[in-house]
Nucleic acid binder design. Structure first.
Lengths: 116, 116
DNA sequence: CTATAATTTAGACATATGTCGAAGCAGGGA
DNA sequence: TCCCTGCTTCGACATATGTCTAAATTATAG
């Protein structure tokens, strides 16, 4: 009848129907990571020792032109998932943990379907 | 220096660079939820007492035609995020927790940037 | 000041995606 | 049997997205 797990019960998504505006907001965030290249970019940046990566290193990891990588980085940045800064000749990017965490929280404690 | 949280440290995405195929696979899953309508649909289904919802109830919640709702449900279903079945006159849908959990796990224990 | 290297911006183009109206397919009743 | 209701499939269409080439921008080195 009631939930069997020790969870605080239910991801936001399962607790109550998402409002139209919350859905739009979250969908925009999800769109930013719903691309193979951007997922890999995010992973590359997040897993890099030091937490920062030079664009030059990112470009080498793909079979894509620099403008394309730049475009994807901009999408991630606009979504607030990464931050970036120019330092001399190179530009460095790092992840913004709080924003990435929003994605995780959305689905995580889902587990059981609502009623059960 | 080392991570300060009690976390098992780092979501898969931050532990090591995602492989090309893993990224493609996960991006497909994320694409399925990276839409305001589908997010709301998933939330409506997940939060419904009983864990099942009739399509007729879903259609009423949106300013969209039935074919469009049907299309979105198919996308969610193809991604394995929901299951569905016809029972007499009506068709019911429910969420598949394991698949939804994959999304949460991807980002959840991220927290700190890798190196720090 | 000019040349070179690292990124981003701009513009173009092909493909993918969201939405609709019309038609097709069950099931349940008269 | 015939029809009506609920849902899906089909085809069309406008918009969004990913990628490229060419050009602009910013910084360092001669």
């Amino acid at each position: 009848m009631t939930v069997a797990t020790g969870q605080p019960c239910c991801a936001p998504i399962a607790r109550e129907p998402l409002s139209e505006s919350a859905a739009a907001d979250l969908a925009a965030l999800l769109k930013a990571v719903a691309d193979p290249v951007r997922l890999r970019l995010l992973s590359l940046i997040a897993s890099h020792p030091g937490g920062e990566v030079c664009v030059c290193d990112l470009t080498d990891a793909f079979d894509l032109t620099a403008p394309t990588i730049s475009h994807h980085l901009k999408v991630l940045r606009t979504a607030g998932l990464i931050g970036g800064e120019r330092r001399g000749t190179w530009v460095y990017y790092w992840v913004v943990p709080a924003q990435v965490a929003r994605l995780g929280e959305l689905f995580t404690p889902l587990a059981q379907p609502a009623g059960e």
